[in-house]
Design a protein around this nucleic acid. Structure first.
Lengths: 200, 200
DNA sequence: CCTACCGATCGGTAGG
DNA sequence: CCTACCGATCGGTAGG
């Protein structure tokens, strides 16, 4: 009979990927080493390779669960009720909440996509496009004039993602502005900022 | 008499740093190699080290001239006339123009600061803070209600930088939206988005 | 004795 | 789950 899997297999696997997320976020994927990860986990390189077949596979694990969380948020929103402005507010607040709860993974997702192997990367990119499309539709609902020019709409969507994605680089949730306050500020910028939109 | 410096010394030095900017932007500082840079320049590693003492010094050269360009833009604005809204519009357009004209350097500045040695990094960070402070003051002029809460003001400033900095990750100047159109769209978001601001 | 550059190789460390 | 290693490539420097 085959040996049983260690009782704490899943916990260990999760602990490794979480530490990897922190190291990758801190030093970048290329700047971080498996040796360093092993040391941070108080274990050996071989143990890491027992749980993940390659450094890239670890990177994929860091990103995969996180993009799924973001995708869940937009899918839940798709079936929810409410006015466009309220739905936009809800999504921005939800995104900020996810970003704060998984700051390292969010940073890795934004910075190290190029280090994924092609097939893994295109899988993640596909999911990112779903998230972007959802924001497109939401923004079109908030400001119908924007919906008439899909290139401008997409540009506005990316400016919105810029606001919230860039927070990974400066925002500290324990600082003077709470995540909810920041989300409220960003929502106001988006809603009031698009309100005055006229066809160019 | 000492031999004269090669007539094309400055051109060569500039060509190397420009190629380095492209490689660093593409692969990240840690992911790029001096060997690869030498190959891209059709020359030897030794030639690279003749012009720059270390890989980090090259990174500094990439960032230094670029942050100086950004700083010049805000300093020129400081002595310029005009209403707050017009000054904001002018700065956003000027930033977008600089970003587009030095896309690789801009990307490197945003992504690879952590790889600079401490003293070089703090020099760059100091200049970045000047740029951020200028945006703080500009935003306070546009919406005086924001100026009363410096933490919210700073958060709003960083959201604005998020919009324009994030463009490095998606914007293609040869696409359907011109740099000026994008700057106009971003300016409208900022000006209208802050117009409705009330004390919380 | 300077600057400009080459081919070859250094000591260390990466992922595996 | 560890120690002991590998082929390769890293940033940087030697002699000429």
């Amino acid at each position: 009979m085959a040996r049983t899997r260690a009782a704490d297999y899943d916990e260990r696997r999760e602990a490794i990927v979480e530490k990897a997320a922190e190291l990758f976020a801190d030093k970048g994927f290329e700047g971080a080493s498996i040796s360093g990860l092993a040391a941070a986990c108080n274990t050996s390189k071989s143990l890491i390779y027992h749980y993940y077949t390659s450094k890239e596979e670890l990177l994929y694990a860091v990103m995969s669960s996180h993009i799924d969380d973001l995708l869940d948020a937009v899918n839940n929103l798709a079936i929810a009720q409410g006015k466009p402005a309220e739905r936009m507010s809800a999504l921005i607040h939800e995104f900020m909440s996810i970003y704060v709860g998984a700051a390292a993974r969010q940073k890795v997702l934004l910075n190290d996509l190029r280090s994924l192997p092609d097939d893994r990367r295109s899988e993640i990119v596909l999911k990112q496009r779903s998230v972007i499309s959802a924001m497109d539709r939401l923004l079109a609902g908030v400001q119908p004039a924007l919906a008439k020019d899909k290139h401008r709409l997409r540009a506005a969507t990316m400016l919105v993602f810029g606001m919230i994605n860039w927070t990974s680089n400066w925002y500290r949730p324990k600082g003077p502005v709470s995540p909810d306050e920041l989300a409220t500020l960003a929502t106001a910028l988006i809603l009031d900022g698009t309100k005055g939109y006229k066809d160019p």
